[in-house]
Each structure stands twice: as structure tokens, then as C-alpha cells.
């Protein structure tokens, strides 16, 4: 066997090996792509469930805010209306922010976000329009949302999706606890003049933390208290 033959065989062998390696790599990439695609699909489903709850919360706060601005004359908590309206506006804005973040993430995963117009908030059975009832409804919604966001962490596979769910869930619990304490009488509105600036400043963080979020939108943006 000539050296030429050997080198040709060797070259052919090398070519076949390279071809096989290439096919193997291509198959592996396809499998990885399929896995990633399946994971993304799972995440999209979970994120769309959270998005639906955000749209419902927005509509609930719109209804609540409308009533808080003009409560019925005989509503026992009528005097709370203007302050409650400030909180409702801020909390509504936070839900809008969350929905936007969820929509962007779903699109990043090549998914289709559910349409806002397809979601309808229906007041619960037995609901009558009073300041206290709107606070109760908001508290129930925030509690359910907080649990849903944390439970989603059991299923979400993407790191950014998990970070966002935790970051939004941590803000839902803030709204829950403030309304809950107010309803329980454990806290009462403070002596400070309520203003949009003060309410928005206190609840400035839309998320605890999230990929790409400006510090001002997160708890990182709240300066530490100094000791005097």
C-alpha cells in the first residue's frame, strides 16, 4: 500500500469522522434547542398565568380608585377615600409595570402574551361598593398574587424569569400587608399629609430586583436610613 493510498484513506477517514462529529453536534444542538424550547414553552405558560392576574388587578384598582375618589355619602370610611385613591393609583401603576415586564419576557421567549382585552375582572359574589369592600377585595387579590408568584418558582426554568417572579412577588406582599394591617386596625393612617409624592416615594420600588431594571425601580434605589 502506497503512502498515497494511506493518506487518502486517512483523509477519507478524517472526513468521515469530521462529518459524523458534525452530525453529532448538529443533533446535540437540535436536542438542546428542543429542550430549551420546551422549557421556554413551560415558562411562557406560567408567565401568562401571572400576566392574567396582573391585568385583573389593574381593572380592580381602576374600579376601586374611581369609587375612592367619590365614595357614597353614607360610606363609613368616606374620609379615607382621597388617601386610598392615592394608594390605588400607585398600586395600579406597579401592576402596569409588572405586566410590561412579563410581556417583554414572554416575547423574549418567542411566546405570545395573552391580550389585555381578553381578561375581565369580575367583582366577587356578594360585593357591594364601599371603601372597606374595595380594600378587602384588593387585599385578597394581592395575597393570591403573592402566593402565585412564589409558587411559580417551583416551575420556572429560566433564571431571569425566576428572578422576575421573586422580585414582583416581593412587592405584592408589601401591598398585601399594608392593606391587611389597615383592615385589621393594626395601623392607622399616619399624621403626615398624604400626597402623591409621599405615597409614590414610599412605594417607589416596582420590583425587589430584576434583570435590567433601573435602581430607582427596585429596593436598591431606596437609600438606607442614617442613624442620628
Amino acid at each position: 500500500m502506497s503512502n498515497e493510498d494511506l493518506s487518502r484513506r486517512s483523509a477519507l477517514g478524517g472526513g468521515a469522522a469530521a462529518l459524523l462529529t458534525g452530525i453529532g453536534a448538529a443533533l446535540a444542538v437540535t436536542a438542546v434547542g428542543r429542550d430549551a424550547s420546551a422549557q421556554n414553552a413551560g415558562d411562557v405558560t406560567a408567565l401568562n398565568g401571572l400576566l392574567e392576574a396582573e391585568y385583573k388587578a389593574q381593572q380592580a384598582y381602576d374600579l376601586a380608585r374611581g369609587y375612592f375618589m367619590m365614595p357614597a355619602g353614607d360610606d363609613p370610611l368616606r374620609s379615607l377615600g382621597p388617601s386610598a385613591a392615592l394608594f390605588a393609583a400607585r398600586f395600579r401603576a406597579q401592576h402596569t409595570d409588572h405586566a410590561t415586564r412579563l410581556v417583554n419576557l414572554i416575547r423574549n421567549f418567542q411566546g405570545t402574551p395573552i391580550s389585555e382585552s381578553a381578561v375581565v375582572f369580575t367583582p366577587p359574589p356578594g360585593f357591594s361598593r364601599t371603601v372597606r369592600n374595595f380594600l378587602r377585595a384588593a387585599c385578597n387579590l394581592e395575597k393570591a398574587a403573592a402566593v402565585a408568584y412564589v409558587d411559580a418558582l417551583k416551575r420556572l426554568s429560566n433564571t431571569n424569569a425566576a428572578e422576575l417572579a421573586a422580585g414582583v412577588g416581593g412587592v405584592a406582599t408589601q401591598r398585601f400587608t399594608v392593606i391587611y394591617l389597615l383592615l385589621k386596625g393594626a395601623v392607622v393612617p399616619g399624621t403626615v399629609m398624604f400626597s402623591e409624592a409621599n405615597v409614590n416615594g414610599t412605594f417607589s420600588a416596582n420590583v425587589v430586583s430584576a434583570e435590567g431594571a433601573a435602581d430607582g425601580d427596585t429596593l436598591r434605589g431606596i437609600p438606607p436610613y442614617m442613624y442620628m
Binding site: 394591617l181 386596625g185 395601623v187 392607622v188 393612617p189 399616619g190 399624621t191 403626615v192 398624604f194 436610613y225
Partner: peptide, 10 residues
């Protein structure tokens, strides 16, 4: 909220 005086103990 307590420190910003938005709320006080009930």
C-alpha cells in the same frame, strides 16, 4: 411606612 409617617400603630 412607619418611619415615613405614612402609618402609625393602631
Amino acid at each position: 411606612s412607619l418611619l415615613r409617617q405614612l402609618a402609625e400603630p393602631g
